[in-house]
C-alpha cells in the first residue's frame, strides 16, 4: 500500500507561491484573507491575531489557513451533511508578513453550528519556517460559551487549556472583531489538534 508523503516546512520564501496577491507579486491568489462578499449568509466578522514563538516574539513568516462553514453551518464541500453552499468557498489564507505587528486577518462571516453537536468554529491550519509538519487547531467564539460545554472536540481538550481555542469578541464601529492569538510554547501554549 502507498504510504503518506512526509511533510516538510513551508520555509521562509512561500509568499510568491502561496500568497502572491497579498504580498504584491502580481500573480493572482487562489485564496486570500477575504472570504465573504455582500451575499454570504451570516454575520460579517473579522478574525485577527498574531503568532508568538517560544521567546514571545511575533512570527512574521507564517501562513495561516482557515476552513469554515457559512453562517448557516453549511460547508462548501459536497461532503457536508448539512447541505452545501458552494457560493461560499469557506477557505481563507493569510501570510503574517504584510500587516503591522505580524498579524493575520480574515474578513469572513461567523460560521453557524455545523452539526454533530458542535459549537460554531473554524478549522485553522498553520505553516511556518521552523515547523516541519503543519499544525491544526480550531477557533471558537467567546459569545458561544454556553455551546462550548457540550462540544465534542472541546470535551477532548483538557479543561485548563480550552480557553486557548476561544477567540475573544470586541465590537467596533467597523463590526465585530474576534482576537485569536496563537502561542507556540509556554504557559499559554495553544492547543493543537491531532485530526
Amino acid at each position: 500500500m502507498p504510504r503518506q508523503t512526509p511533510s516538510q516546512t513551508v520555509g521562509p520564501f512561500f509568499a510568491y507561491g502561496l500568497t502572491p496577491g497579498q504580498y504584491g507579486y502580481g500573480h493572482a491568489d487562489v485564496a486570500g484573507p477575504v472570504l465573504r462578499d455582500g451575499t454570504t449568509p451570516g454575520e460579517a466578522i473579522r478574525i485577527e491575531g498574531c503568532i508568538y514563538d517560544g521567546a514571545g516574539k511575533t512570527v512574521p513568516d507564517a501562513v495561516v489557513e482557515i476552513w469554515q462553514a457559512d453562517g448557516q453551518g453549511r460547508y462548501a464541500s459536497q461532503a457536508a451533511a448539512a447541505g452545501a453552499n458552494t457560493a461560499f468557498t469557506g477557505f481563507g489564507r493569510c501570510g503574517t508578513g504584510t500587516l503591522p505587528g505580524d498579524m493575520f486577518v480574515f474578513e469572513t462571516v461567523k460560521p453557524g453550528a455545523p452539526g454533530d453537536g458542535q459549537a460554531p468554529h473554524a478549522t485553522l491550519v498553520l505553516f511556518m519556517r521552523g515547523l516541519l509538519t503543519h499544525l491544526f487547531t480550531r477557533i471558537y467564539f467567546s459569545d458561544d460559551a454556553a455551546l462550548h460545554t457540550t462540544d465534542p472536540v472541546l470535551a477532548a481538550v483538557p479543561d485548563a487549556r480550552r480557553h486557548t481555542l476561544v477567540a475573544q469578541r470586541r465590537d467596533t464601529p467597523q463590526g465585530p472583531v474576534y482576537r485569536f492569538d496563537i502561542h507556540m510554547q509556554g504557559e499559554r501554549e495553544t492547543v493543537f489538534l491531532d485530526i
Binding site: 485564496a31 514563538d53 517560544g54 521567546a55 512570527v59 476552513w67 462553514a69 460547508y75 462548501a76 464541500s77 459536497q78 461532503a79 457536508a80 451533511a81 448539512a82 458552494t86 468557498t89 469557506g90 477557505f91 455545523p114 452539526g115 454533530d116 458542535q118 468554529h121 478549522t123 511556518m128 519556517r129 521552523g130 515547523l131 516541519l132 499544525l135 491544526f136 480550531r138 465534542p152 472536540v153 477532548a156 481538550v157 483538557p158 507556540m184 510554547q185 509556554g186 501554549e189 495553544t190 492547543v191 493543537f192 489538534l193 491531532d194 485530526i195
Partner: peptide, 25 residues
C-alpha cells in the same frame, strides 16, 4: 528554527466531525 517554534505539547487527539470530512474545492 524548530526549537522556539515547535509546540512543547503533543497535538490532542479529538473525534472527527463534519469539519474534518470536508475541505475546500
Amino acid at each position: 528554527s524548530t526549537v522556539l517554534r515547535g509546540p512543547g505539547q503533543p497535538p490532542v487527539k479529538v473525534p472527527a466531525t463534519a469539519s474534518e470530512r470536508t475541505g475546500p474545492v
